[in-house]
Design a protein around this nucleic acid. Structure first.
Lengths: 220, 220
DNA sequence: GTCTATAGTATGATAGAC
DNA sequence: GTCTATCATACTATAGAC
């Protein structure tokens, strides 16, 4: 109800590196919601509170902006997994404890819908030469990290990734927000997928949820 | 190399029901590749070999066309699963044999990239009121079919769905086409995901692959 | 570091002919 | 059943001022 508070018009001069991150965060939400083709540089600009030509000026092309959004998401994911593994190692946790920790790190990261959805959008854009290539190499990087640094065997990694993809889908579909639905299947499916009580699921998933991309559209 | 053979200009009068199916098939490919926002009615028209206003005339709005594409995909999926279950029942197969049969039916269906990708695009568009609602109810229908008619317990269903989502992602990402890549992880990941030898995977996945959406774009 | 103005193109949908 | 013509809007990217 707080008017258009999500995208305050800065209009002040800000260090390029700061502005860069603001734009990337806004672009994650817009690309996540509308996909590579459907997102517009103007929507990104509005979500970031700056002018459209400035977005283009800073990133050159829409394709390049998307690739940078993807790199940022993959980077955060790799950093989170490395941190979780280091933590598990330092505490001499068991293999299963480490896997739980990895799952928690993942759930925490994709609590940011922009990150989650822009990753999914990248995977679904595999036919674009530049984006597809980066998506594939990023996915393989994660596979290798889990197999080598987390010491999982291939079947274990596949299991882990498969559940991650189902997480992604349920959150993207917004089934998590449908708990009040009349269908008793919804809580059943969610509890069995997330293997934990529902209130924890909802808290984790809803925590970082931002709606700036939608705000920008309404404001437009 | 066969020029633009994929989208022959019909120009003849054809029964509306036939034209309808042609447009839906073309729209599946276009929406699958470019998403709901990024697809255009003109691209759909070109892929179907008819004029853009005729697409709008027949389906009213782009949103309605997308919903019909989604319904068609969900319908095919449900029919395929029901048929697989009936077949398994008539042959008095074991629970595990039935699950294998379901997996095969799924792999066969998503050999059509248009179906696979437009389903994924629908899931990722959960924030659109009409599309999101249909995507959620369709997903729940599949969940219930597996749990009740296939007699799986919730954890089994989740396991089945999770692997399906990983299938989807790997195919969408076009990792399957990257077997010649220098990275030995690719075949390893694919073999463990699809739990079968690679040549079977590739044959199944590549079988129905059409490129008409891409053709339409080049022709434009 | 950031803007306004704008060029050139593409968009969804309607009107109306055949 | 299918088209051409067209309106009003929106797109990416560039030019150039401050």
């Amino acid at each position: 109800m707080a008017s258009d508070s999500a995208a305050p018009k800065p209009q002040e001069r800000v260090a390029a590196s700061v502005r860069r991150e603001q734009i990337l965060a806004a672009a994650s939400r817009v690309f996540g919601e509308r996909g590579y083709y459907g997102a517009t540089t103007d929507l990104v600009a509005k979500a970031a509170g700056i002018s459209q030509p400035y977005v283009v000026r800073m990133f050159g092309t829409k394709e390049n902006l998307f690739v940078e959004v993807l790199d940022r998401a993959l980077g955060k994911l790799l950093v989170a997994f490395h941190a979780a593994l280091d933590e598990a190692a330092s505490k001499q946790e068991t293999h299963d404890e480490m896997k739980t920790r990895l799952g928690a790190a993942y759930a925490d990261l994709i609590g940011d819908r922009g990150i989650l959805l822009s990753l999914m959008q990248a995977f679904i854009t595999g036919h674009e030469p530049v984006i597809g290539e980066r998506a594939r190499s990023g996915f393989l990087e994660i596979y290798q990290l889990l197999r080598d640094k987390a010491d999982m065997d291939p079947d274990e990694v596949v299991e882990f990734l498969a559940h991650g993809m189902l997480f992604n889908t349920l959150i993207a579909m917004r089934l998590v927000d449908q708990l009040d639905a009349d269908d008793p299947c919804v809580p059943e499916l969610l509890e069995h997928t997330f293997r934990t009580k529902l209130d924890i699921v909802v808290n984790t998933v809803t925590k970082n949820d931002t709606t700036s991309a939608a705000d920008a559209r309404k404001t437009a």
